[in-house]
């Protein structure tokens, strides 16, 4: 079994601050490089997010198999669920599940919605989508490669349900960016 955070306290704190900054400034890329030795299928930023946020209280869904799945089960202690709609946190290492199939909370408890962590091929600032909304002064640009073709439509539907909705964390290697449900995405024209 490969190790988790070398220092469980400061590793989790650093990962959380990267996530908090990412969520507070959607589309800005944060670095989180606290897991040097991981199963091959896991991106360091995505694995750090899971370790920092999940435990026995949070049902987790993932499409990871083999060593990666065992690593998540062992180090987080989270119950792994087969039904994505029952999960509070999800990690998609390949194709992401459709946003509309995930828990988006209720009008009175929108905070019960799922957080979806997606591992992508590439993530870059300064080009691609134009993001606006809370946390963004004018606009942020974010280019994410490897999402489904109809992602913009899925996101628009997710955005429309505000305050309900799924929050997204996009990861490539040790870098991550977040799209909270409040963010509007305009495709680059």
């Amino acid at each position: 079994m490969r190790p988790a955070f070398i220092d469980p306290v400061f590793g989790a704190q650093e990962a959380f601050r990267a996530l908090m900054d990412a969520m507070a400034r959607p589309g800005r890329i944060q670095r989180c490089d606290v897991l040097p030795d991981l199963p091959e299928a896991l991106a360091p930023a995505a694995a750090a997010a899971l370790l920092a946020l999940t435990d026995a209280e949070t049902p987790v869904w993932t499409d990871a198999t083999g060593e990666a799945r065992d690593w998540i089960a062992f180090h987080t202690g989270a119950p792994l669920v087969a039904d994505a709609s029952k999960a509070q946190f999800l990690l998609a290492t390949r194709a992401m599940p459709k946003l509309s199939t995930l828990d988006s909370g209720t009008d009175e408890t929108p905070q019960d919605s799922a957080t979806l962590i997606v591992q992508l091929d590439a993530l870059a600032e300064g080009a691609g989508w134009r993001l606006t909304g809370p946390g963004i002064e004018h606009e942020h640009r974010l280019d994410a490669a490897g999402l489904p073709d109809d992602f913009a439509a899925q996101w628009a539907a997710n955005r429309k349900g505000f305050p309900c909705g799924v929050d997204l964390v996009l990861c490539t290697g040790a870098r991550l960016a977040a799209l909270p449900r409040s963010t509007r995405i305009e495709e680059a024209g």
Binding site: L19, M23, L53
Partner: peptide
């Protein structure tokens, strides 16, 4: 650490839903 994780989860959702009490 378990308490911090619980508070951290609440903080991230709070940022995603500005002004909503969690």
């Amino acid at each position: 650490e378990a308490t911090k994780r619980m508070i951290r989860r609440a903080i991230l959702k709070a940022i995603a839903i500005p002004g909503h009490q969690i």
